[in-house]
Structures are given as C-alpha cells and as structure tokens.
C-alpha cells in the first residue's frame, strides 16, 4: 500500500464513531442491573431451597410414602384374611411382609418430564458460565396383584436442577 493510502488510513482512524445514546446506556443499565441483583451464588444454598421433594427427609411428601406403604400392607392383609378365613386354621408360616409382596407387585415405573425452566446464568468457581435449569417431573409407580383385580397407583412431583455449560459461538 502506498504512502497516500496509509495516510488516509490514519485519517480514518482519527474519526471517532458516534457514542451510544443516553437512552441505550439507560436500557443496558436496567437490563444488567437485573443480573446484578440476581447474581450468582455458585452453589444454591440448601437453606434457601424453594422446593422440597421426597428426597428431603424433612419433606411432607414422605407422608405420601407412608400412606402408600400403609395401603399396601392393608391390601395385603385383607387379601390374606379373605383367602384364609374359611379354613380358620393356623396362620401360614409365610410372614406378612412376604405376603404383601405376593399380593401387590410393582408393574410400572415411569418418569415424565413436565417442564424445563431456565432460571439463571451462573459462574462456576473456574469462571466458566453455566445455565441453571430446573426440570419438573412426575414419577409414577403402579402396583398390581397377580390376578389383576387390585391396583395401586402412586404419583409424586419431583424436581431436579441441572447446570448446562454455555459455550461461545
């Protein structure tokens, strides 16, 4: 490139592009201020969890398990009494627990993803950006007796949080 073109380049470099407007700065301020307030604990604090699932020992949802177990035991005992009452003989040697597993057996277990909700962009300790995504599931378990005459269906909502690495493009 000859000297006159190089001189022209220098003249161009001396031109200053128009600065961003105050309105744009305000819009950025507003948008990024929201990020600052939502900022980035690298690990979600356990004490501030919004949702409790059956994976927490303090969750009320353990009551569902208790109710389900109770129902299973009741059904098993009821079936047992119905079968044995005409004979009025001694109790069979099979323990009640074993009888209950004979009476109702799990026949189906399913997990259905209901919704995935992106929540925030976070920074890992190594500085890499990740997106926190909360998945909402419904877990379904079904029990059935051998004859197919008794059925128990149990559904419970469940949540899982996962972190998705963000890469540049």
């Amino acid at each position: 490139m000859d000297n006159s073109l190089q001189e022209l380049e220098r003249e161009l470099e001396a031109l200053s592009p128009q600065a961003p407007s105050a309105a744009l700065m305000n819009r950025l301020e507003t948008e990024l201020a929201a990020d600052a307030t939502a900022a980035t604990p690298t690990r979600p604090p356990v004490t501030r969890r919004r949702y409790h699932t059956a994976t927490s020992w303090t969750s009320w949802k353990w009551a569902n398990w208790s109710v389900a177990a109770g129902l299973v035991a009741l059904l098993a005992v009821a079936t047992h009494w119905t079968d044995d009452s005409p004979a009025a003989g001694p109790l069979p040697e099979t323990p009640v627990a074993a009888a209950s597993t004979d009476a109702l057996r799990p026949v189906r277990a399913a997990r259905t993803l209901v919704e995935s909700r992106p929540e925030a962009i976070l920074e890992l300790p190594d500085g890499s950006p990740v997106e926190r995504v909360r998945d909402y599931f419904v877990d379904t378990i079904e029990w059935q007796d051998a004859a197919g005459e008794a059925q128990l269906r149990w559904e419970v909502p469940r949540e899982a949080v996962r972190f998705v690495a963000l890469t540049s493009y």
Partner: peptide, 18 residues
C-alpha cells in the same frame, strides 16, 4: 442500538469470561 444492546447483553452474560 437495539442490535448492540442485544449483542452486548448476550456477551456480558455468557462470553465475557472466555
């Protein structure tokens, strides 16, 4: 300005650590 706002916010949130 709209385009720069979108691009800068995206950069700031996702790429500034790269």
């Amino acid at each position: 300005e709209d385009v720069v706002q979108e691009a800068f916010v995206r950069f700031w949130r996702q790429q500034r650590h790269l």
